[in-house]
């Protein structure tokens, strides 16, 4: 009997854990709708949720196309950024001299707010897709370099001793200890990188573009089409969530040994 009572209470707690955030979100949207109607706030100042939903169906904007442009830039930049970041992390981990040589540049880039260089990239590379992708690469490779190099270095000393005692070379130690050890760090970096990729895509489009969600937001400002900007915010939120979820799913697939207990 006691067992039955306990399971019921547990499932109620479980329900509360999942339902409370949903209730909170729905209540917030309803309240938002009510406040806009109650105070008759015009849509160009602050649109209501229903107006935002409507904007997706008015046909003035090709939402799918604009979303695709931004997503394509973000993903391309992120993929290149991750590859470059991983390579740099490996190089600075394996070579102490190279680490010391590259360190000042890495630290300088680390502390610089990277979006600040966006307007200047276009002087160098022109108003092209390449410039936009480059900004995203700069934003995404950073968390990967920092996290992966930590993961490659922050290994159990005993495992190194163990392999050295078995006459293993640096390559064996790298592939059997350092690389697998860096995986959880890599995925933590990837979570930061995917949100950075979206920031980069939007900033790049602010500075130079005639398409994409960033351009759409900027254009909405000139035309007082606030509803369209909020439509773009909604899509960006969903994109951010999907990219983040994709990283988590990938991490669970590749690391069944991590927090599986």
């Amino acid at each position: 009997m006691a067992g039955v009572g306990r399971t019921t209470r547990l499932s109620l707690q479980g329900l509360a854990a999942y339902s409370l955030p949903v209730i909170s979100f729905v209540a917030g949207v309803v309240l938002w709708q009510l406040l806009i109607s109650l105070f008759r706030i015009p849509a160009y100042l602050f649109p209501s949720p229903s107006a935002i939903v409507q904007v997706f169906f008015t046909g003035h904007v090709n939402w799918l196309q604009q979303t695709w442009i931004t997503l394509n830039e973000a993903v391309t930049g992120a993929v290149i950024g991750v590859i470059v970041g991983f390579a740099i992390a490996v190089v600075i981990t394996l070579s102490a001299p190279l680490r010391k040589i590259l360190m000042p540049y890495i630290v300088a880039l680390q502390v610089l707010p990277k979006v600040a260089i966006a307007p200047i990239i276009y002087i160098l590379l022109g108003f092209s897709n390449t410039s936009r992708v480059l900004l995203i690469v700069i934003l995404t490779f950073f968390p990967i370099v920092i996290n992966v190099s930590t993961g490659l270095t922050d290994v159990d000393r005993n495992l190194i001793y163990l392999l050295q005692s078995l006459r293993a070379g640096q390559a064996t130690i790298f592939f059997k200890v350092r690389l697998p050890n860096s995986l959880p760090y890599f995925f933590d970096g990837l979570k930061i990188a995917v949100s950075g990729a979206l920031v980069g895509a939007i900033v790049a489009e602010f500075v130079s573009s005639n398409s994409g969600l960033g351009f759409l937001i900027l254009n909405s400002q000139y035309t007082f089409n606030t509803v369209a900007a909020f439509g773009a915010f909604t899509i960006l939120t969903v994109l951010g969530l999907l990219l983040y979820a994709a990283v988590i799913v990938l991490a669970r697939q590749l690391m069944p040994w991590y927090r599986s207990g």
């Binding site: 005993n158 001793y161 163990l162 200890v177 040994w257």
Partner: peptide, 27 residues
């Protein structure tokens, strides 16, 4: 060649029991 047992078991958390024990044979 030596066999090594450490203070904290120092297993590879990304390897199963079987693969952890197999490690020295691989090396």
């Amino acid at each position: 060649i030596v066999g090594y047992v450490f203070q904290d078991s120092s297993l590879m958390r990304w390897r199963t029991v079987y693969d952890n024990i197999k490690l020295p044979l691989e090396v």
